[in-house]
Structure formats: structure tokens, C-alpha cells
Amino acid sequence: MSAKPTSAPSARYLNASSAVARYGMGVLITAIYVFLLAPVVIIVFTSFNPTESNTFPPTGFSLRWYGAFLESSSFIEAFKFSVWLGAIAAVGATTIGFLSSYAIVRFLGRRREAGQSLALLPVMIPHILISISLLLALTIVPFPELGGLIVGHVIICLPFTIAGITASLEGVDEQLELAAMTLGASRLRTLWEVVIPLIAPGLLSALIFAFIVSFGDVYIALFLSGPGRTTLPIEIFSYMQWESTPVVAAITTVQIMLIVTLGLVVERLVGLRKIMRV
């Protein structure tokens, strides 16, 4: 971007064109951000709309749709179930992710890159394929469908917990673990008393981020949810196929607030970029 012209004759031309380019770039970047954020911002505005239709700009301010959300038992049940499922999937994905990440960082040596790529496999597979295959397997193997849903969520969360935890483990000096073992600690005790305390923020971030992934998922639950185990996104999806009132806006605004707050916590702890691998 910042071209440093050294040849005098073209300097003035370059400066003028660089001002135009900078201005154009600014407009373009602003437009892209408007595009990225508009659908999310519009939902928040719509949720306070007093009228039935999804009009914008809003014609007034009302908490009517939040009331409708709290009175709808099916949405409340789905919300509770999503929180419950997200918590279980987060604990599962963080535990399995921690064990695998530690093995990847400490034991794979030169094959580490390959191991990490394999661990991140579920990102590269369309989630619809994962869930449809699990559903088919469950029609043959006697395994509870709720178990299938939980495992499906653990699978889609694992790449993110592994990316976050391996990044945290890179900051841990191996000498500390060797010292603990020299002093007679077993490998398990070293993990528990040395490694885990050192990467606690990374583990907490992995937990929260896995919860976020599970909470937002619609594709795994699309095939594996059912009576008594309907997640919030699925409840919204089936509701929207018939009607679309701002009650959905109220629910999704609650969801957005929850997710953004949790995201900010992760950002403070280890940085979202490490988990998203950017």
C-alpha cells in the first residue's frame, strides 16, 4: 500500500494517485463492513419493532416480541436444550481436544503438521454429510439418537478446540514438564499439575468457543434433532418455514448478545484469531 517513491519525477503523480487510492480503499472497506454487519444490526432493530411485519426503519419501540419469546414454551425449551447440548459438547470437545493437542505438540515431532491437518478434518467436510451419515448409522446400530447429536457436535467443535489449545501449548516450555518428571511426577500428574494450570486460559477459551460453535450449529441438528431434543436454530428454522414475525428477531438478538459477549471473553483470554487459525 505505502509505496515509497524514490524517483523524483514520478513522486508528485504517485502522491496524487495514492490519495485517490487511499480514499477509494476507505470507501470500499467501509462498504464491505456495512455488508458484513447490516444483517446482524437489522435484527437488533427489528426486535424492538412494535408492529407485526419486519419493517425498517422501526415505527416505535416495544418489548412486545421479547414478551412473546418468554411466553413461547417451545422456544424456551429449545433455548434451554441448546445451552445444555452446548455445555456437554464443549466439555467433550475440550477434553478430547486437549489430549490430542498435547500429543500433537509433544510427541509427533516432524509429523506434527500432518497430525494437525488430520485433526482438523471435520472443517473440510460439509456438515450436512456428517449429520446425514450419523443418522443413517443410527438407523442400523442401536445407539441413542441423543448420543448421535452430542457426538456430532463434539466432532464439529474439535477442530476449533485443537487449534486453540495447540496454539496455547506452543507457549509452554517443555523443560517445566521435564523438571516435574525428573522430580518424580508421573506423566498424568505432570499434565494435571503443570500443563493444565499453565494453559488454563487456552482451555477456557476452547470451552467457550466450542459452546459458540455448538450453539450456532444448524446442520448437525438438522438430521439428528427430534422431539425433546430440538435445538434453538432448528426451532427457529422450522418456525420460519411457515411464518416470520419479529419474535424471531427477539430470540436471535438474545442469541447475538450471548455469542458476542462470549466471543469478547475469548478475545480477551487468548485471541479469537488463534482459534480461527488466522
Binding site: 447490516a38 444483517p39 435484527i43 419486519n54 450456532g216 444448524v218 416470520s244 466471543g263 469478547l264 479469537l272
Partner: peptide
């Protein structure tokens, strides 16, 4: 600015799809 790119992603597919329904509807923005 980086957070603002990641934030919409975290809200999930259904939230963003709903946002577009509101934006693109016949009485939409």
C-alpha cells in the same frame, strides 16, 4: 475490525439468514 469479521460468523447460519430475510423482504430495508 478483525473481531467484526469474526463476530457475524459466530452467530451461526440461521441468525444471518434471518437478517437477510428482514433486509430483502418486500417491506425490507
Amino acid at each position: 475490525l478483525m473481531f467484526l469479521v469474526i463476530a457475524p460468523l459466530m452467530t451461526g447460519v440461521i441468525v444471518r439468514t434471518y437478517g437477510w430475510i428482514v433486509l430483502l423482504g418486500s417491506e425490507g430495508t
